[in-house]
Design a protein around this nucleic acid. Structure first.
Length: 472
DNA sequence: ATGTTC
């Protein structure tokens, strides 16, 4: 496959075969996937064949292989022109995302309370596969409220304030959730998991603001140098996974009816205006609300720990998903068009003055939260005017080697010792989980962020370094 | 990512 280097941070794959649009990969040459080890560039090409796709099939600098679509993939389809929605363009962890809270605490004050704080977080933050959560829902009726009202219901029932809503994407909940499209099995799996991290690359990290690149924007976000923060990365647990499974199956069955053929069955899809697509989008929105409630409740649990141990509070900086499809209006070829924008391992990045921003962020843009791999830096970026790929950017470091490869080549004991030696406290991580998440299995998040900036997708505001990590 | 193979 031919990659044409348009700029040092933008590569193009010209239309060929069944492609309806070109492929565009925002990456440095060094970050491009190795075709021998990772077939995600082929996935960019295959996504470009989807009915109704507009612009290009995009990939972010942290791209790697995923289910159907690449992780780090962005694809928009025209709702009124036969455009489709594909569950593979969102992924199994629907509305997985990141929540950043800032403590009224300086990094110098963290040292003396480090052990007590980390022990308390280790005790109060549920994690790992299976059950155990901050909030067990009282059956299907209460679940329906979480699915419809998301973080708004979590704040009302479990604690939180106005800022928890206006500083959350979509004000804490999307309106078009349809709990009727969520199967009984999905609900059953989700009942006991609201307020739980899960496993894999999900975590809660205590961090410090190590460097500020833009004082004005950082101040508006609520961040200052040396400030202690808490970053939470998790999603919709078994509920979202089951919704994806259910609706992929339904779309596989429905595709022949719509005369849609795809080059990979993992790209199962249906026209956005079809009953199958409406059902998926309603269930997906419900999972998005569930994921926001999950992160809200975990943030509230961390706030309670901070209050108890330090007497200080946590305040929300922002909460944003990186696995979601949304119906958005964008200008394409000089025309305003209604698009279904799939972001899978890609973060929405609204520029200053975008109408969807809350008033206190209008002048500076949306906080974009980019977790690094375990033990490395994380970044806070902001959206920029004219950002390509429908206002999207990267979502993290991006996996370089499979979980299996990582577990084979890394000794958890060595990794844990290395983290502790660097002053990073570790709580609750299984040996296997630790090895699978070794930084050696990931790209360098600093290079990824540099590529995103170089490509004009976002702008760096601050770098955060880890002080302690709670992992599944 | 995931009651890590209904």
């Amino acid at each position: 496959m031919e990659l044409i280097e348009e700029t040092p941070y933008r590569f193009r794959i010209d239309r060929h075969g069944q492609m309806r649009v070109p492929g565009v990969v925002y990456a440095s040459r060094a970050l491009l996937p190795d075709p021998a080890a990772d077939r995600s560039l082929d996935q960019v090409v295959q996504v470009a064949t989807l009915p109704g796709i507009v612009g290009a099939s995009y990939a972010m600098p942290d791209m790697h292989w995923g289910y159907g679509f690449p992780i780090g993939g962005v694809a928009a389809t025209d709702v009124r022109d036969g455009g489709v929605v594909s569950p593979g363009g969102v992924g199994f962890d629907i509305s997985c995302g990141v929540r950043l809270l800032a403590a009224d605490l300086d990094r110098r004050e963290f040292g003396p309370v480090r052990e007590r704080l980390m022990d308390a977080l280790g005790r109060d933050i549920p994690r790992g596969a299976g059950r155990g959560a901050v909030w067990t829902l009282a059956g299907q009726p209460e679940m329906a409220r979480v699915l419809r009202e998301g973080s708004r219901y979590a704040v009302r029932r479990r604690g939180g304030g106005d800022r928890d809503l206006y500083r959350c994407e979509d004000g804490g909940a999307v309106d078009d959730a349809d709990p009727e499209q969520v199967s009984a099995r999905a609900i059953d799996r989700g009942l006991g998991q609201v307020g739980s991290l899960g496993s894999g690359n999900h975590f809660l990290e205590v961090q410090a603001v190590e460097e500020v690149y833009d004082e004005r924007v950082a101040e508006a976000f609520g961040l200052r140098r040396d400030q202690v923060c808490v970053m939470i990365h998790c999603g919709s647990r078994g509920l979202g996974h089951q919704i994806c499974t259910d609706h992929v199956r339904a779309m596989e069955k429905a595709m022949p009816r719509y005369g849609i053929q795809v080059p990979d069955r993992q790209l199962a899809c249906a026209p956005v205006e079809s009953p199958e697509a409406r059902a998926y989008l309603g269930a997906m929105a419900a999972a998005a609300n569930y994921a926001r409630a999950n992160r809200q409740v975990l943030g509230d649990a961390a706030d309670r720990v901070f209050r108890a141990v330090t007497g200080r509070t946590l305040e929300l900086v922002y909460d944003v998903s990186h696995n979601l499809a949304k119906i958005e209006t964008h200008e394409v070829d000089g025309e305003r068009r209604e698009l279904c924008v799939h972001r899978k391992g890609a973060t929405r990045a609204l520029p200053p003055h975008h109408p969807d921003l809350p008033p206190d962020l209008r002048e500076v843009g949306q906080p974009v939260l980019i977790p690094g791999s375990m033990g490395t830096a994380s970044y806070v970026l902001t959206g920029v005017p004219g950002g390509g790929a429908f206002f999207s950017t990267c979502h993290g470091a991006g996996r370089l080697r499979s979980r299996h490869q990582a577990a084979k080549s890394v000794r958890a004991k060595d990794l844990r010792r290395d983290l502790e030696r660097r002053g990073i406290a570790v709580r609750g991580a299984s040996a296997r989980g630790l090895a699978e998440e070794a930084p050696a299995a990931y790209k360098d998040v600093t290079e990824v962020v540099a590529a995103a900036e170089g490509a004009g997708l976002a702008r760096a505001v601050a770098r955060l370094c880890p002080l302690g990590v709670v992992k599944g």
